[in-house]
Design a protein around this nucleic acid. Structure first.
Lengths: 158, 158
DNA sequence: TGACAATAGGTGTTATAACATCTATTGTCC
DNA sequence: GGACAATAGATGTTATAACACCTATTGTCA
């Protein structure tokens, strides 16, 4: 079964360069995986970003985190985290508590409902990832991770 | 310089599994690369998806393509391609022509302006990709492409 | 040939993302 | 201690994405 990008996208001509081919493959693969992941989350009323926030807040513990901390830890860039948290608060997944020491600070914490949701999702999420990437060997996964990490390193100033 | 995800995202605990770590690295890397790419395109008034459409239409030749063809060839899933093309038409990048043989068909084609834009972008886009991924060796790029392609293969029905 | 499914595309509406700007609070330094 | 920069967060507004549903045209087949 052939399923390279040229075939997928009905492209006739060869790719211009190897870096471009890598970039296209990266975008395509992420899109495919993300689509499956969103599909899994949809019945629970959240998307990938909100799930990401739930994971972050669970990892942060009882004190919660400020808006900017959450923004900086998100996998994908997201301006307007305020209203993302608004929606999650409206859904009862998080609460906000303004600090009394520094009144600029507003900590966002998981509610029991938010915590329960993210806990309940652990298994299906792990299963989904297994289903999507489980056919790669351990060595392949390690190599993939290594190369993706390497790809994120910015080039030294020329 | 260390820049693995655990460090980037202030994560203390180890990842749950290798597949999960791969998925997170994939999402993160794509996000970083996409952000740089969008930054490059912004001065030209288009985003990554519109650029993708321009490339697709240039590849398709003078006859242009129907809406569904374009949708299917896009790197990332995009419902509502109609209004994406609306915007591009308003910007003067494409035109729509309804077929006389089958009046259901509406071909979308590049205008001279759209063609000029995508041509002008070839060089800076190639340079950006080179800047982002040029520090990987040819062998590393080939391996990355191979693994990403492999990652997209759906698992055989269990 | 007339009903009806299939195909191509569009529209209405709501939610979310993006961008710039604003307010409140605290730290700093003369 | 008062001016002012810095920080944390929120808001107003516009553009875009997402979802469901609708229209027009063509193919098919009893």
């Amino acid at each position: 079964m052939t399923s390279d990008l040229r075939h997928d996208l009905q492209q006739q001509k060869p790719f211009i360069s190897l870096v471009q081919e890598a970039q296209l493959n990266l975008a395509r693969t992420e899109s495919v995986l993300l689509a499956g992941f969103e599909q899994l989350l949809k019945p629970h009323g959240i998307g990938a970003t909100q799930y990401n926030v739930l994971r972050i807040l669970r990892g942060a513990g009882a004190e919660g985190l400020g808006r900017n901390e959450i923004r900086d830890r998100l996998l994908t860039r997201m301006p307007d985290v305020t209203r993302l948290l608004d929606r999650m608060a409206r859904a009862g997944l998080v609460v906000r508590v303004r600090s009394t020491e520094d009144r600029r600070l507003v900590a966002t914490r998981l509610t029991k409902r938010g915590r329960d949701l993210v806990d309940r999702l652990d298994e299906p999420v792990a299963a989904e990832h297994q289903r999507r990437l489980g056919h790669l060997t351990t060595a392949e996964l390690r190599t993939l991770i290594k190369l993706l990490t390497l790809a994120r390193q910015p080039r030294h100033s020329p």
